[in-house]
Amino acid sequence: MSGFFQWLEDLPLSTSIAGSDELYGFALVLVLHTIGIALTAGPVAVMSLRLLGVGRPFPLASLRTLFTFFWIGFIGNAITGSLLFMMAATRTGHNPMYYAKLVCLLFGVVMLRRVHHAIERDSTQDGTGALRRSVMAVAVLCLVFWAGVITTGRLIAYTK
């Protein structure tokens, strides 16, 4: 894998962004990645909290628009995250924390799809009633995995 990581890091795209003007290269990718975190983890937090009963009785269906923001942030972060990885592939590619982040991300998205399902199902009713415990458990897991994404993501810079 080391050869593949080195090849990624040496690609013209990787070197041009890493070596470009500070304000519009690496820094801009970093800024966009941070805004992406706000657009993904922010709505996830609100939707999960609502499933746990915070803010009841506003109807769950009213949160559906948040999924649009989530997916915009998610696609944006997939792009900026890939660029950040390419720029430091030889270092990040050997860091277990990076793979821990990917695992949290995978489970986070799976849980979010279940949250989505719960919201869609609830939209057929008045959307303000008590929720089943299984739905609340999904909301807790969703919060845990997305907190895991942020935690492992931040720790990549501090671990080897």
């Binding site: 706000a38 657009l39 983890a41 922010g42 996830v44 609100v46 923001f69 935690t151 993501g153």
Partner: peptide, 14 residues
């Protein structure tokens, strides 16, 4: 700092 950011931005957005 980043968990706080996510929580804050989620509420700000909604």
């Amino acid at each position: 700092h980043f968990i706080g950011l996510a929580l804050l931005m989620g509420v700000v957005l909604v």
